[in-house]
Write a protein that binds this DNA or RNA. Structure first.
Lengths: 361, 361
DNA sequence: CTGTTAGCGCATTCAA
DNA sequence: TTGAATGCGCTAACAG
């Protein structure tokens, strides 16, 4: 029969809080079959007569049975879950990434456990904790995510780094940065601007670093000497501060290449409020193509990345690794797209629809 | 001694893919103690001599031991994880909610498993699957999340509904909508506008429904008859379409009250491109106070909700429930704030008034 | 302070 | 097509 082996009536037999308390045993008992049969019909594995199947399903329904994932995980030795570690979620970037990741993970039958590092006192601890409940982890490489943590994880669980260079067997995926940054910078240079500044912290994240490298490369290609970057963190407020320095002549520039759109937008806004002409006096370009960049006048010239696809790629690679696949030595790079609108000095057409789009790489 | 009880050398003794393979047994063996002791030092429970603790920690380190969460979950009968079901993540709303939720959940020692319904073929299935791996679930109430699903869940796991009315013992948390919508509408009415339209689908989500009710209430208070709502989904493209109908005189209005900022923004943009004056010819107001609403000219008049706090509240309530607390019969409502800028017809001051300091990428 | 032992609920051989 | 038996790795009494 299908009775749980000598189940103690001891004090600790309470069901999980809030759970209906039904187990595979109670289902089996009610259906008058063995737990093996219940498992079979629920997994769709093996062959079970339709009559038996019905009985089991009826019992499941009546008892409101919800299998205990932990028990299954223990038995199959797989969590069937992917971990994703991101700094935070403001702005469209990480959200888009997460949507792509979740979507693909779900397709692969994996649930996703999310962890945000910002505001966490002990990131390493949190990550170790996460490692406890997932089969593999995708981490976004940033200043907030010390390589040491990722490396410590490696060797315990498959790790895929999003953005950043592959290292020590940790593979990496990312969007192209250097070339498009060079192309974008060259575009501004071609407008006749001579005093460009890069706003953003190249050491804040690997991708910003690469964008700055592209900025420098474009200058070099013309035999120009790039100015020192204006290192500011990604805060909207920072943009205002930079604008003030621009207005005060403290920063001498006729064009500002920003590490992202938020920065570019807030700088442009402050400049315009002060009565300055954009792009007349200052050309401004950003990165990410956030929604506001389409609605602002002039439209913000920027770079669009296939962020969602990046999330999908990360989930795919991670799954491969969990399935036993070898880590890819080469970084997987997705192409980006320079979006020309008016803020760079180009004649701005209608700003909302069909922006001029050019492919990069 | 600390040897696993007659561990079969059978074929299925392979470790979880990618895992180091160390278990509490191997750690105990290497440290020369029992598994109970290993468990004690790892849980910080009981008392273990510092010497023994050291030995254990050394063994853990040497073996690169990562506990199997599933095994712990099975033993403690708690997943120590909260589930969160959201439609999607575009726009700042859900992201902010998620950040609040994750943050509080982490503080409570719970990991969060995220599920997005958009694009899922079988939502009910996905939710059941999720229920398998968490102690409780917070779901966002929307059209995409049929009440039936939430109800089915209820009785199996604690459920907290975010937005939407409490029902059948499912408690609910949300931000205030009706009153602020009424206040906002009255504000527009006070500008002398007489032909207001509500843009958005009141049946799309409970909170939109409430906003529409506020819209109607404001009219009633003045003895006015509200026009039928222009039912459109939340897509940027829809805004353009609405604008075209406005331009064609197909929709007769001098003010448009939108269900959210994206809609309001795209309508305003299209109208301006067509040479129309906002707020001169059309007053426009939105909801959510997204970033773009601060940068656009005129600034968008809108309503700000404490979204992050809502996420925190949801996590808190869910945790209470998981701990055995009773569901609250009354809906928990967080206050919102009407933000007056220029798009409603008010004299627009500087439009970039000290943006809330938010991190962005 | 430490070790022994008995499950937690499920998947999965192996027989029947 | 089905059932019995076993073990997944860990926690938590209970002894000592």
């Amino acid at each position: 029969m299908a009775t749980p082996p000598e189940r103690g009536a001891g004090p600790s037999t309470a069901p999980i809080a809030g759970a209906s308390g039904a187990t595979i045993y109670s289902v089996a008992e009610l259906a008058g079959v063995s737990i093996a049969t219940v498992s079979r019909v629920l997994q769709g594995a093996g062959t079970v007569s339709s009559k038996t199947t019905e009985k089991v399903l009826a019992a499941v329904d009546e008892l409101n049975y919800v299998p205990l994932g932990a028990a299954r995980s223990l038995a199959v030795r797989q969590h069937e879950a992917h971990g994703l570690v991101l700094p935070e979620l403001s702005g469209p970037y990480y959200s888009e990434l997460l949507m792509g990741f979740e979507s693909r993970a779900a397709d692969l039958g994996q649930s996703v456990t999310l962890m945000l590092t910002d505001g966490k006192a002990d990131i390493a601890r949190a990550v170790r904790q996460l490692a406890t409940r997932v089969d593999g982890i995708a981490v976004f490489g940033s200043a907030a995510m010390p390589p040491a943590v990722a490396r410590a994880l490696h060797g315990q669980k498959p790790v895929v780094m999003i953005t950043g260079e592959p290292q020590d067997g940790i593979e990496s995926v990312g969007a192209e940065n250097a070339h498009s940054a060079e192309e974008l910078t060259e575009h501004v240079l071609a407008h006749g601007r001579m005093r460009l500044v890069f706003v953003g912290d190249p050491d804040g994240a690997p991708d910003i670093h690469e964008r700055h490298e592209g900025f420098v490369a474009a200058h070099r290609a013309r035999g120009l000497q790039p100015a020192e970057p204006v290192r500011v963190p990604f805060r909207e407020g920072e943009g205002e501060a930079v604008a003030e320095r621009l207005l005060a002549g403290e920063i001498d520039a006729d064009a500002v290449v920003c590490a992202n759109d938020e920065l570019a937008l807030s700088i442009m806004s402050r400049l315009q409020d002060a009565g300055r002409d954009v792009p007349g006096e200052f050309a401004i370009v950003g990165w990410d193509d956030v929604m506001a960049s389409r609605y602002v006048r002039p439209g913000m010239t920027t770079v669009r990345q296939p962020v969602r696809e990046l999330g999908i790629l990360a989930a795919d690679r991670l799954h491969q690794r969990v399935q036993g696949g070898e880590p890819l030595a080469e970084r997987q790079v997705l192409p980006t797209q320079v979006i020309i609108r008016g803020s760079c000095g180009c004649a701005s057409s209608r700003s909302t629809p069909s922006p001029t789009e050019r492919r990069t790489r």
